[in-house]
Simulated scan of single mutants.
Amino acid sequence: MSSLPRVHLRPTMLSDLDFVVSVEQDAANLPFITPWERTQHEGAIRFPDSRHFIVEWGPQAQAQAAGFIILQGCRNPHRSVELKRMVLQPKGQGVGRACLRLIKQLAFQQLHAHRFWLDVKGLNTRAQALYLSEGFVEEGRLRESVRVSIEGADGYDSLIVMSMLDREYQARRAMNEESA
């Protein structure tokens, strides 16, 4: 496998929110997320229990914004950190995998998470495959829990809850499965 692209995270600034909203509203991303209002993003930037990051990729001097990531539960007394959202524009170039590895490292090594979890829409099979290949375990499904409207068709989709525990992450590190 070729090496993953260089990605880094920087804290989202209020001046980045036009970009964040545009990535969320992009037709390639919209079916897979439940978009937030701008004020919800502002709250995530300001709230101490959350971390809101802009994902940049490429050489540091020429890095381009590729998307954003939101973590919640960063001060959770049970050390259960949620990957609330990871929305990227480049598809099929390894940026998502590189981001996921970086954010797992942050969750487990900096935030000292015991459990790192997420939910993903059932129709987002690409993301599910990524999470499974990166060591996340399916815990269960919230059946038909989100309303979905795609090209005028209304319906419901299920959310799949997945997680990774700190000991599972450490085992992956020991087997060199977490290097970027």
Rank of each mutant, 00 (worst) to 15 (best):
R6H: 04
H8R: 14
L9K: 03
P11D: 13
L17Q: 00
D18T: 13
V21K: 14
Q25W: 00
L30P: 04
T34S: 15
P35C: 09
R38V: 10
T39Y: 10
T39L: 10
A44G: 02
S50N: 14
R51K: 14
H52F: 11
H52Q: 13
I54G: 03
W57E: 09
G58P: 03
G58Q: 11
Q62I: 01
A63I: 01
A63T: 01
A66Q: 05
G67W: 05
G67S: 10
I70Y: 00
L71A: 06
P77G: 12
V81Q: 02
L88I: 12
K91T: 04
K91S: 07
G96A: 14
Q105F: 01
F108H: 02
L111Q: 04
L111I: 03
L111E: 06
A113H: 05
W117Q: 12
V120N: 06
A127Y: 03
A129W: 12
Y131G: 00
L132Q: 14
E134F: 04
G135N: 06
G140I: 06
L142A: 10
S145R: 11
S145Q: 11
R147P: 02
V148E: 07
I150P: 03
E151Y: 04
G152A: 08
D154W: 08
Y156W: 12
Y156H: 11
V161R: 05
S163Y: 04
R167P: 00
Y169C: 06
Q170P: 05
A171N: 08
R173C: 15
E177I: 02
E178V: 07
S179T: 12
A180I: 06
A180H: 10
